[in-house]
Design a protein around this nucleic acid. Sequence first.
DNA 1: TAACTGTTACGATTTCATTCGTAATATACG
DNA 2: CGTATATTACGAATGAAATCGTAACAGTTA
Lengths: 126, 126
Amino acid sequence: MARDKSAVKPTEAELTLLNILWQMGPATVRQIHESVSATQKTGYTTVLKILQIMHEKSLVIRDETNRAHVYAAANSEMHTQSSLIKDLISKAFGGSTSKLVMRAIDESTSAEEINDIRQLLNSLEK
Amino acid sequence: MARDKSAVKPTEAELTLLNILWQMGPATVRQIHESVSATQKTGYTTVLKILQIMHEKSLVIRDETNRAHVYAAANSEMHTQSSLIKDLISKAFGGSTSKLVMRAIDESTSAEEINDIRQLLNSLEK
DNA sequence: TAACTGTTACGATTTCATTCGTAATATACG
DNA sequence: CGTATATTACGAATGAAATCGTAACAGTTA
């Protein structure tokens, strides 16, 4: 059975590249590789290969107009984050969002972040 | 380098078994297999094998006193959930807990859950 | 004790994720 | 044009995850 596109969950390496694409916007393999090289030692062709696989999975789109293809995230950061968090809630938190929030907040969470969350709650209709 | 025990992240299949162990408490392979069979079609030896691997990784402990070994989760549900959520926050949310909470709450979140979260925030010192 | 049953142990297979070397190709430049 | 360079394409190697068949073993019972 063909896998539903929306069900595609990026692997860890793929998520690393998506983070770069969300931050930089559309970019060539070279640019992406340079960015990822700042924190990891990964070969150029490794990055290329992962991007090609991501393209097959429709995790990225690419513009082949020029010699150096330009890659871009297929889905927004927000969309992907929502899907990742829903997946975790269902698989590790018995479907309970509040349980997840309880675990997410701990002593290391800054007062500023707590405030942001309070404001979010205040803005809800419910 | 030896992997730090606390850094061991359960795989998806392992998490399924951990959920059962947290819910049932210590159990034999047979019991665990029966439970998992309620929702999935998985062979008995597959469950056994995964438990053995989890034992090697110290994700579970086991009592070998009796013929049928009794398995139990090595870490609490809360501990494991915290570690999973921290991992996700760092890899997909740029370290921002509030961003994660914003993505976690959506139209499908019940009023009751929202209330639980409000109470959690109220109970914080910050 | 012998064979039946239920359990663990072991190893093979398959699939996926990751890595990277090398070949093929396209572009630029002398 | 033809050589150098940058890029993409391909495929192999490795390792982890998941599955399950079969062997080995222990305990039970006829």
